[in-house]
Amino acid sequence: NQASVVANQLIPINTALTLVAMRSEVVTPVGIPAEDIPRLVSMQVNRAVPLGTTLMPDMVKGYA
């Protein structure tokens, strides 16, 4: 099972992602792969992401 990126805190809309804001977890459905965490740092989310939410490619500006 592949680990996905999960919000480690509430991430407000247009907030730049940080290492502290993300964690890796095996979840269903699978979201952005955990190995992409370094690439996600400083990218912005295009919606509010609640704690525990799996990050999907369409939630991160410039990711997809």
Rank of each mutant, 00 (worst) to 15 (best):
G52D: 09
N46Y: 07
V45L: 06
G52I: 00
A64G: 14
G31S: 02
A16E: 14
Q2V: 12
V60A: 01
Q2C: 10
I32Y: 02
S24F: 07
L40A: 00
N46R: 09
I13Y: 13
S4D: 01
R39E: 07
I32P: 01
S24L: 06
A21F: 14
M43A: 07
R47N: 05
D36N: 13
V45I: 05
T18Y: 06
V6W: 00
L55P: 02
E35P: 06
P33V: 06
A16M: 13
G52Y: 03
L40E: 03
I37K: 02
L51I: 14
A7F: 00
V27I: 06
P50D: 10
N14Y: 15
P29T: 03
A48W: 11
V20I: 13
N14S: 06
M43E: 04
L19P: 06
L51Q: 13
A64P: 12
D58T: 11
G62D: 12
A21Q: 13
I11N: 02
M43S: 04
L17P: 05
D58L: 08
V45K: 02
V6H: 01
A64I: 13
A64H: 15
G62V: 02
A3W: 09
T15Y: 10
E35F: 12
E25V: 08
L10R: 09
R39I: 14
V41W: 00
A7Q: 02
A16F: 15
V60Y: 00
T28D: 15
P29M: 04
V60G: 02
P12F: 06
G31T: 03
K61D: 13
L19Q: 07
T53G: 10
N1G: 15
S24R: 09
M43L: 11
T18F: 06
I32W: 01
V49N: 04
E25Y: 06
S42I: 04
A64Y: 08
M43Q: 06
L40N: 01
I11L: 09
N46K: 09
P38W: 12
L17A: 00
A64E: 12
Q9Y: 10
R23A: 07
P33L: 08
L17T: 00
V6N: 03
P50H: 09
V27M: 05
T28F: 12
L10M: 12
S24N: 05
P29A: 04
S4A: 03
G62R: 06
S4V: 01
S4N: 01
R47K: 10
K61Q: 11
T18H: 06
E35H: 12
I11K: 01
P57N: 04
L40W: 01
T54F: 00
S42N: 13
P57S: 08
S4T: 04
T18M: 07
P29C: 05
Q44A: 09
N8L: 04
T18P: 03
L17Q: 00
M22W: 00
V30T: 11
I11M: 04
G62L: 07
R39G: 07
V60T: 03
E25M: 10
A34K: 04
V49D: 03
R47L: 07
P12H: 12
T18R: 08
D58K: 07
V27L: 03
L19V: 09
N8R: 08
T15S: 14
Q2K: 10
M22R: 00
V45M: 02
M43R: 10
T28E: 15
R39T: 10
A64K: 15
G62M: 08
L51T: 15
L51F: 14
M59L: 03
Q44M: 14
P50I: 07
D36G: 03
S42C: 15
V26M: 11
G31P: 01
I11P: 02
Q9N: 08
M22S: 03
I37C: 02
E25N: 07
V41Q: 04
Y63P: 05
R39V: 11
N14P: 00
L17R: 00
M56F: 11
N8W: 04
M43Y: 09
P50S: 11
A7R: 01
V30Q: 12
L55Y: 00
A34M: 06
P29W: 02
N8G: 08
N46C: 09
I37F: 02
T53P: 01
S24C: 07
E25T: 07
V6Y: 00
S24T: 11
I11V: 07
R23G: 09
L19Y: 12
M22H: 00
S4L: 01
M59P: 02
A3I: 06
V6P: 01
M56W: 04
T28G: 05
R23F: 05
I13A: 14
L17I: 10
T53S: 12
R47P: 04
V41H: 00
P29Q: 05
S4C: 04
M43F: 08
V6A: 01
E25C: 08
M59A: 07
A7G: 03
Y63S: 05
N8A: 15
T54D: 03
V45E: 04
T18V: 07
E35K: 10
V26I: 13
M22L: 13
V41F: 00
Q2P: 15
V60L: 07
L17D: 04
T54A: 05
A3C: 12
N14I: 04
V6E: 01
T28R: 06
G52P: 02
T54P: 05
V45F: 00
N14R: 06
Q2S: 12
D36H: 14
R39F: 12
G31I: 02
G62I: 03
G62W: 07
V20F: 14
A34R: 03
E25W: 08
T18C: 06
S42A: 12
P38Y: 11
Q9G: 05
N14C: 10
